[in-house]
Design a protein around this nucleic acid. Structure first.
Lengths: 141, 141
DNA sequence: ATGCACCCCGTACCTAGGTACGGAGTCAAC
DNA sequence: GTTGACTCCGTACCTAGGTACGGGGTGCAT
């Protein structure tokens, strides 16, 4: 059950093109699927989710390398547990900082919209302030 | 008060290199500063904040083009207000979706860390699920 | 009035992340 | 058993976002 998928099907379902799958495979971010005797790749349905994850994570500002780290965590839950835990914890912090920045940006845009809606002009636009005390390097403790 | 800055100073303060400033200027994302009679650029202190904003926004997954849109909003608060409002509102939605995705990712990592801390292995890692139903169209509140 | 750091500009080059090409083999429906 | 869509692989090419180079001018402290 749960048919195996071929490259074209995975690509279409995930919204990427076939060459991208091969590219990810070469990069090691997508692991090599089983092959038929003909050489055709046969992906498990999960592959689609992996690829979608990759694309979404990229939109969130993660590099392929970082995405790979995240995916490794996924498999790696028994071996080198402490290591994995440390990585995960650190990623969580990074993610939290991104969330904070995005919240600030959203808020700043909200202010713009509102001032725009009510009256004409706003001096001192808040957008720059939004990311000004950037949590970029480390959230201040 | 508040001296004008030269390229090197802005670059250093913002953590980029000088060529990057020129590159942004060519791209139109950083507007051309005043020049001395010698041809030297003189930036207002705010330029540093603009550049930092650009860098941070990129880390949040925005392209330079998108960053430009955001920066344009900043200046554009009187003219074509309705237009600006629409753009801002749409960006806010996009940002909210990113926040949702990041929250989901963070939570998934939390599960990993916990399961890792307590016992050995976890089947069915939650990371993929995190972005699986990406909030692209329907953010769950 | 010289030295050294800094700036100018144009142009070439680089990395990340794909995309496209093209000749050959495979699958399945007709 | 042929046809048309799909897949294989290697290699070349492309876009975004910078970086580096190099020859020449500037600023200012000594």
């Amino acid at each position: 059950m749960a048919g195996k998928l071929r490259t074209g099907q995975v690509a279409k379902a995930a919204g990427v093109n076939v060459e991208t799958l091969r590219f990810y495979e070469r990069r090691g971010i997508l692991k090599e699927p089983h092959r038929r005797s003909s050489g055709y790749r046969e992906y498990p349905p999960e592959a689609v989710r992996v690829v979608r994850f990759i694309k979404r994570a990229q939109e969130l500002g993660f590099t392929l390398y970082e995405v790979e780290e995240l995916l490794v965590l996924r498999e790696n839950t028994d071996a080198s547990c402490e290591q994995a835990k440390a990585t995960a914890t650190q990623k969580m912090e990074e993610i939290e900082e991104k969330i904070q920045s995005l919240r600030a940006m959203k808020k700043a845009l909200g202010v713009l919209v509102k001032s725009c809606a009510s009256k004409g002009s706003v001096r001192e636009c808040p957008i720059l302030d939004a990311l000004d005390d950037k949590p970029t390097k480390r959230a201040r403790s």
